[in-house]
Design a protein around this nucleic acid. Structure first.
Lengths: 316, 316
DNA sequence: CTGAAAGCGCTTACAG
DNA sequence: CTGAAAGCGCTTACAG
């Protein structure tokens, strides 16, 4: 910038004004001259310097969070990476950049944000009871995906009507004559989207005067169980169960595979309905019946919300 | 930092020395005092300031590159995200951070690197003939994944013996009595890993005195074809073909699905062998026979190479 | 419309 | 072992 200013015989200030397109502040003539020099030298602004002055960077942190010791690889789950795809697309179009990390504690999140003075943060996997802690420790806008929480100032959420979605899933099985329908989810059911989905499941059973049977609720704790022992629990009750609703396609696919290996025919012995409509779900056999949600759109939505809030902040 | 220095009654310099663990330069007593204050205020260094001084940040760019107009979402491919998982893990353990973006031009890559003064870059999808251009425009260490290129100074590659891997895949079909084996890959075959795999395919056919039949080479151009018309080409030759080798599981899964929809039984009508051993490959039906490669390890490897080079740079 | 000054938080020589 | 100075590249008031 200094060199450009020298070559154009203007001050650094003027170059800065040109870069920031403050047209009213620079004559067209000098602007043109400076732009030429900028292009000639292929000048790129140094983000570190800018961030330092502004005490905020053009970085958005994208965090995959899972507060458990398990050595699970969060990037293996297509749901997470489809969200990432949406975020990538929108931020790129708006000259923001994406800092990605998977973490297992909230403190790691705080550290990233402070270290890089990120403009905002998008997080997957936060539980409702963690939101207030999060809010106290982060002073940039926060967007949570699939966390069911009241909108507080500074905390925005992206989600769908999970309860209704799951009513649809459950209703589908009922419509096909099923009564003994198992509910299969990951373990942290309290407060998360899975609770909403559970409520949708209950809604439908109740509407059809079917009693909720605790024995048909299967919760997969990824850290304490393996898929084999988990599916055994379902196998034990196979003569009773005729249908299963899953809160996630990814889980449905894994369980289906395990059940098939144990000689259970799907859908002949047990019918299955998933949730998410992951792109891989169409490749299972039989094709997984699933409730669609547009995952990439969730990511785009999250990014848009963040950008909007950031714009408003700037105007104040 | 200034505040910490003031409270400890030392200079900023001394605080800096403590933070960087230059033990020889600070007495144990002052060190302890300073560390206490650092903890008390939960001090986190400002990376922007550091990057500015060093003219290099603790950011590593992870780029998914595809030089085509197609609107393909690169995060949808589990291969890419499994690599990402490996990179994430290693960088996190070494206090580096990950800047992720999918791009469609080399210029976008250069821009990211200059803008953020990244310490290094890991790229997927570079073709061999693009390497020299890349090298001329990037002055940080570059690690290319699955690009077949001679090792030049500053450009490192992570890959496997693709030719041998594909010999194994092809040999598997031969061993099962197949002779008319189709080779299915994505379109950009020249110079990439697919060429190595093609050579492996040729090796085996030749060894068994089977002539290469141009009509059995299927190249899927994602931008110009759709899966339906592509699989039609295979269907046309279904009475002749008895086996197919695929250069990627992801492609195999999509094609298999399409073929099944068109009434082709797998493996009864046509046997299929994939490549990669994606975690989702085990969920297809029939389970995809595939040549294993440890994808996450490729990502870890890439990160390790980068860190090693960075360490060596520092020592000079 | 243009410019000189101060400062963001840190590090790197260098002097004591 | 400790410190004062200069500077990284940029922006934000402010003065002309």
């Amino acid at each position: 910038m200094k060199d450009i200013a020298k070559e154009a015989n203007v001050s650094i200030m003027t170059v800065s004004n040109v870069i920031h397109k403050r047209k009213s502040k620079v004559s067209e003539k000098t602007e043109k001259k400076i732009l030429e020099i900028i292009n000639k030298y292929n000048y790129t602004p140094n983000m570190s310097a800018r961030s330092l002055v502004n005490n905020s960077s053009k970085l958005i942190a994208f965090i995959l969070y899972q507060n458990r010791k398990g050595e699970r690889n969060l990037f293996e789950n297509p749901f997470n990476t489809e969200v990432l795809a949406g975020v990538d697309k929108v931020l790129k179009e708006n000259d923001y950049y994406l800092l990605v990390q998977s973490v297992s504690t909230l403190e790691e999140i705080y550290l990233i944000i402070k270290t890089w003075r990120t403009a905002g943060v998008i997080i997957l996997g936060i539980l409702p009871n963690e939101v207030s802690h999060l809010k106290e420790n982060i002073d940039t806008p926060i967007v949570l995906i699939d966390t069911v929480t009241p909108n507080e100032a500074g905390v925005y959420t992206v989600g769908i009507d999970d309860r209704n979605g799951f009513q649809i899933a459950t209703e589908h099985l009922i419509a096909n004559g099923h009564k003994n329908i198992g509910f299969v989810s990951y373990s942290q059911i309290l407060g998360g989207v899975d609770e909403q989905r559970y409520l949708g499941y209950v809604d439908v059973l109740k509407a059809h005067h079917i009693e909720i049977n605790e024995n048909l609720l299967f919760r997969y704790n990824k850290d304490k169980m393996n898929m084999d022992t988990f599916s055994d629990e379902i196998v034990k009750k196979k003569d009773f169960i005729t249908g299963l609703v899953f809160t996630a396609d990814f889980l449905a696919i894994e369980v289906m595979d395990s059940l098939k290996n144990k000689g259970i025919a799907i859908p002949d012995d047990i019918s299955v309905v998933g949730f998410d409509n992951l792109s891989i779900s169409q490749f299972t056999s039989p094709k997984l019946t699933t409730v669609h949600q547009d995952i990439t759109t969730k990511g785009q939505e999250a990014a848009h919300i963040l950008l909007k809030v950031l714009m408003e902040k700037k105007l104040n």
